[in-house]
């Protein structure tokens, strides 16, 4: 087993490919979660984006992580629709900005990239932690990454912890009252249901830690 210290372009591609597969498998589940708090389309919309992204991976390989994430972000923005397309697209575009011209990114860079993604998402969606949105999975994951940089964790350890933080954050959304997006129209009645956006965001971290693990073997 070799220690992986940096995210590479093949790993990034493996990650998003696995995320696409996961989203397509989760389509019905996400739709059902969304029907409880919104319009029942989160799974279908993200799956449309996942299929478009899978198709785009058949093209030539990107020359840098920045180029790869920019391309993925624009594909998501122009295929998903709704708030989730703009938000997931923004996340990928922010990863692109921080990894521009880089072929690899270590934990420090990835932590900065996800911190920038969180900032971009909170700015665009005007959501804060506790509003019962995908921010409630992303925010604890980013905090965990920043702590891992301080603790000098290895890449796999850091993203395993970040994934765990996202899972915990996502589970906590069940007890929250939605304050942003479609769910907010339900007020108190949104309590008791896990947020679909936080669920798909958790899957993004799960597939990333899986990919790092896969490349570590």
């Amino acid at each position: 087993m070799s220690m992986v210290t940096e995210l590479t372009i093949p790993m990034a591609q493996n990650w998003l490919s696995e995320f696409c597969k996961a989203v397509i498998e989760l389509e019905d589940h996400l739709n059902e979660l969304d029907a409880a708090v919104g319009d029942g389309e989160h799974g279908s919309n993200l799956s449309n984006g996942a299929r478009a992204l899978q198709e785009s991976f058949k093209g030539p390989q990107s020359k840098s992580l920045g180029e790869f994430f920019e391309f993925a972000g624009m594909t998501i923005i122009n295929s998903v629709g709704g708030a989730s397309g703009a938000l997931y697209g923004t996340l990928l575009l922010r990863l692109s900005d921080v990894t521009a011209n880089k072929t690899t990114a270590n934990l420090n860079i990835m932590s900065q990239a996800f911190d920038s993604a969180l900032e971009g998402i909170m700015e665009l969606g005007r959501a804060k932690p506790g509003d019962k949105t995908l921010v409630d999975a992303l925010h604890p994951a980013v905090s965990s990454l920043i702590a891992s940089v301080q603790n000098s964790d290895d890449l796999l350890g850091a993203f395993t912890k970040a994934c765990h933080a996202a899972e915990l954050g996502c589970a906590k959304t069940a007890q929250m009252e939605a304050r942003k997006g479609r769910g907010s129209y339900q007020g108190e009645r949104s309590i008791g249901h896990v947020d679909p956006g936080a669920t798909s965001m958790t899957s993004l971290f799960k597939t990333l830690s899986n990919s790092i693990d896969f490349f570590s073997k």
Binding site: D39, G40, E41, S44, N45, N48, I77, N78, S79, V80, G81, G82, A83, G85
Partner: peptide, 11 residues
Amino acid sequence: PGEIFTSPVPS
């Protein structure tokens, strides 16, 4: 026109 109950995309 977006998909059902989904906003259109920037393109």
